[in-house]
Simulated scan of single mutants.
Amino acid sequence: MFLTFDVEPDAPPYQSSSYRGVEEGLPWILHFLEELDVKATFFVTGTVAERYPDLVEEIVERGHELGSHGLDHSRLDKMSREEALDNIVESLRILRSFYPVRSFRAPNLQLPEDLVPRLAENGVVVDSSIAAYKPGHPKAPVWVNGVLRVPATVTSSTIRLPARLARRMTLPESRSFHVLFYHPWEFTRVKRRPLYRPDVWARTGGYARRMLEEVIRLALDRGLRFELVGNAPRLCG
């Protein structure tokens, strides 16, 4: 089982100039995981790493994995392939000054297929830019052009559903392979505004924090073990 967080500006594109998630949500996450001795993979944008180097260093110092979430959370499928590759390479350059990054997740889980071999050329071994809950996406890890593609298995806002449903969907009894992913901004209170989709603001802040604590404790009670995404090639074959 893998626990992952996408560390980015708040609720992009709605609040992309705000960083409350990094400043308030991320320290809370790190403290909570330390309390339970749980390790996670943090996919961080290059610009967040440049803006908050102390927090990125803390992620690494606490034994978590650092992965790339692109340079600035721009959609890679909305730019030319040359621009997208430059974006990825620059993010890796920045993040590798903190950690030997080998894992990647594209913003919005949107990575053009022809960029997968380019990830391998740049030392990326694992990509988690696909979603098992989307039609046509793999439901389990699959090797593609030298990169192990590890799908996220539930969308992040699942943690903010009503409690019973959140528990059942986030930790299904039958699933042996599972990748959870969240955003630090979800654990701060996002204001409801007319242009925001409900899944952006609904039950953010305290409710999301309580549910994450409950889900992680429930997983540990069931004897589940959290692994780093970078270890997926060894664990998944």
Rank of each mutant, 00 (worst) to 15 (best):
L3Q: 07
T4A: 14
A11E: 09
A11P: 05
P12F: 05
P13N: 07
Y14S: 09
S16E: 14
S16P: 04
R20S: 13
L26C: 10
L30Y: 10
L36I: 08
A40E: 07
F42T: 00
E50R: 15
R51T: 11
E61T: 12
G63R: 12
E65S: 06
G67F: 02
S68E: 03
H69W: 08
G70D: 01
L71N: 00
S74K: 10
R75Y: 11
D77Q: 06
D77C: 12
A84Y: 01
L85N: 04
D86A: 13
N87P: 03
N87F: 02
I88A: 10
V89E: 08
E90P: 06
S91T: 13
L92N: 10
L92I: 12
L95W: 00
L95R: 01
L95I: 00
F98P: 05
P100V: 12
V101H: 11
V101L: 09
R102C: 11
A106I: 09
A106N: 09
L109N: 14
L109Y: 15
D114L: 08
P117Q: 09
L119G: 01
E121T: 08
V124K: 10
V126C: 04
I130P: 00
I130E: 03
A131M: 13
A132Q: 10
Y133F: 15
Y133M: 03
G136F: 05
G136K: 14
G136T: 14
H137K: 03
K139F: 07
K139G: 14
A140D: 07
V144S: 14
G146D: 00
L148C: 01
V150C: 08
V150H: 06
T153C: 13
V154T: 05
V154E: 01
P162L: 02
A166W: 00
R168Y: 02
T170Y: 15
L171D: 01
L171H: 03
H178Q: 11
V179I: 10
H183D: 06
H183I: 04
P184Q: 12
P184V: 12
E186N: 04
R189S: 11
R189H: 14
V190F: 06
K191F: 03
P194E: 14
L195W: 14
V200H: 03
A202K: 15
A202H: 14
T204F: 02
G206W: 05
Y207D: 06
A208T: 02
R209G: 09
L212D: 08
E214R: 13
V215G: 00
V215W: 04
I216L: 15
L218N: 05
L218E: 15
D221S: 07
D221C: 00
R222Y: 06
G223N: 06
G223D: 05
G223M: 11
R225F: 03
R225K: 14
E227N: 13
G230M: 01
L235P: 00
C236R: 11
